[in-house]
Write a protein that binds this DNA or RNA. Structure first.
Lengths: 338, 338
DNA sequence: ACCTGGCACTCGTGTGGCCCGAGTGCTAAT
DNA sequence: ATTAGCACTCGGGCCACACGAGTGCCAGGT
């Protein structure tokens, strides 16, 4: 009862079930697969695999399907698969046409959902450590101002501030100048101290604090975590794998962002180049029948943001992982050049 | 055979079917409803309604359900319904906490989807006619610049421009100053002429045209039409009304934006305060089994943007219409004050 | 002219019984 | 350790049947 063959049987079961979505039996395996043994032998192996909890049978007189643990074992014993060439080219052409960061993210998420035929998720690049390049103060009406913060990585964040009193032009200009002096070149962390001291300078205008707060918030703005997703339709298409109200729960979780972000963070913390959560491993009720595959991306080495896919546990893991890896790599490159 | 009673019967059928999602028969109507006639009479009316094409029976021995035309007639004969008080309050509290335009839109779409238990759609306010308030040019690297355009209605649009050559600081500053002089106060339309002449001024730097183009595009940027949606899960929940791959098509259409935008435009063109498209009236294959309810919103009188809901044709039209109307009204108010 | 009670008819759905075959586990032989 | 053979299980498909909801129509009443 060679250990190797048992792994091969498991792999064949996973692949068969993923391909047909029907439980696979020992006979079919013996006929179709390249393991040169009889169905009886395979049955013995299956019994062992079931003992280990890697496969299960839906009813007594049916074939076997992988359990979550079975998929896990399958994934862990997986050699990295190369992406198909046409897919590679698709990524290049798709992403190279993007005009700005939003567009890049938007395109990436669509692309990934098309490549994998799953729900794709891309977290906006988080720009924790980028310094402030410029702060602009623009008047709107007598007692309101628009704060625009441009960061070193070409992100623009904005917010409006109520000044609380009518302010004259010269004063406004002066404050704007001072504000720039106190802000430019600082990271969000440093900003906090430098602007607090600026705002509490003796004789400072009363609305300086509001402005300072707004600048700090805006500079941090890039840190506000957002995810975009695409391909929700693919969930519905894989309908056979869910009862229809389960689809609803999954969609809810997607819109809920928070849940998904927490999960992505946990996965990032594991520190591999690509992370896979299968079924209950997501530790999220709504996602109990789904798997999430995620990879980090970002400027060289610093994979601070995440992207990935979500789909039924019965999915093509090697192919999806290859696509996620590839898109993450290309996206890193694009972000770096921006 | 009074015309009035026939309308009442139709209304009762619609309401019954919407409530129970089961075909309603003559007996049930006679018992439950307040029309004081026997089931036989109702049967006659039903036969007439069926003749008119307003109702149909799924099989011979079943009750009747409304056709698209039946819903249409029902909606057309509808008096405006008031919104429930708790809902009214929900709208107020929900929207008054918003911090900026993005947030307002985001909150609105979620709110609307919760109120109606349908998919909600909000088009970003289109700001065609707002003048440029300020243009900022920021350097990124030696030969790239970030163009930030702030418009009078406090929108910020940005894009990056390749300059094509390394540019010195003083020159850069000078161009930035000139650019502002030539831009500020102009509407996008006026910008086009003023910036073209500026860029073709004798002795002008070679990259002036690229910059000018970027500014014009950014100023127009508010016109880029985008819709956001929320509540896709509600579609899945109403699963009984769709085969599961129909849900997929609808989700595709939602992500496809273009289709939806075209539809919303058509509806806006009809010029009522609220527009309803039922089933095939959407003239979109993917939406053949759904209805769309849309209303315009925007600064007083100028209802230039749209918002609405989308759901199965079997929906609560009066309630949904009331919610759409209410959110449109509140959103108009908010946008006006911004 | 309109409404109503009655009655025959249709047909979709739910139920129970049946068989078939895929797939298994076990055992004995190689 | 592998294989062939065999008895066994059980889910799904099929058929027949009865039930009942709902209809259409007609004749009689107001």
């Amino acid at each position: 009862m060679s250990e190797d063959r048992r792994r091969a049987v498991l792999r064949a079961i996973v692949e068969g079930y993923v391909a047909t979505s029907e439980p696979v039996g020992s006979k079919a395996l013996a006929d179709a697969s390249s393991l040169g043994v009889s169905s009886a032998t395979i049955r013995n192996d299956m019994a062992a695999l079931e003992e280990e909890g890697l496969i299960a049978q839906p009813h007594t007189s049916a074939g076997r399907i992988p359990t979550d643990a079975g998929y896990r074992s399958f994934v862990d014993n997986l050699a990295a698969t190369a992406l198909h060439d046409p897919h590679k080219r698709a990524i290049q052409t798709f992403l190279s046409d993007a005009v700005d960061l939003n567009d890049v993210v938007e395109r990436s998420v669509r692309l990934l959902s098309q490549l994998t035929r799953q729900v794709a998720v891309v977290q906006y690049p988080s720009l924790r450590e980028s310094a402030v390049r410029r702060v602009e103060l623009v008047r709107i009406g007598a007692d309101r101002a628009l704060v625009v913060v441009v960061s070193a990585d070409a992100r623009v964040e904005q917010s409006t501030v109520a000044l609380g009193e009518a302010v004259g032009d010269e004063e406004f200009e002066r404050v704007a100048r001072e504000l720039n002096e106190a802000s430019v070149g600082h990271t969000p962390a440093a900003l906090l101290t430098s602007l607090t001291s600026w705002a509490s300078r003796p004789g400072q205008v009363s609305w300086a604090t509001s402005i300072a707060d707004a600048v700090v918030a805006a500079a941090r703005g890039g840190t506000v975590e957002r995810v975009v997703f695409a391909g929700a339709a693919n969930l519905a298409r894989a309908g056979a794998d869910f009862e229809s109200d389960a689809i609803g729960s999954v969609l809810d979780a997607l819109e809920e962002q928070v849940v998904l972000l927490r999960l992505l963070h946990e996965m990032a913390a594991e520190g591999q180049d690509i992370a896979v959560r299968i079924g209950a491993e997501t530790r999220t009720d709504a996602l109990a029948r789904t798997s999430v595959i995620a990879a980090g991306y970002g400027p060289s080495g610093d994979a601070a943001s995440l992207l990935g896919t979500l789909g039924p546990t019965r999915m093509d893991y090697p192919g999806t992982m290859a696509a996620v890896r590839a898109v993450a790599r290309y996206l890193s490159r694009v972000v770096e050049n921006e």
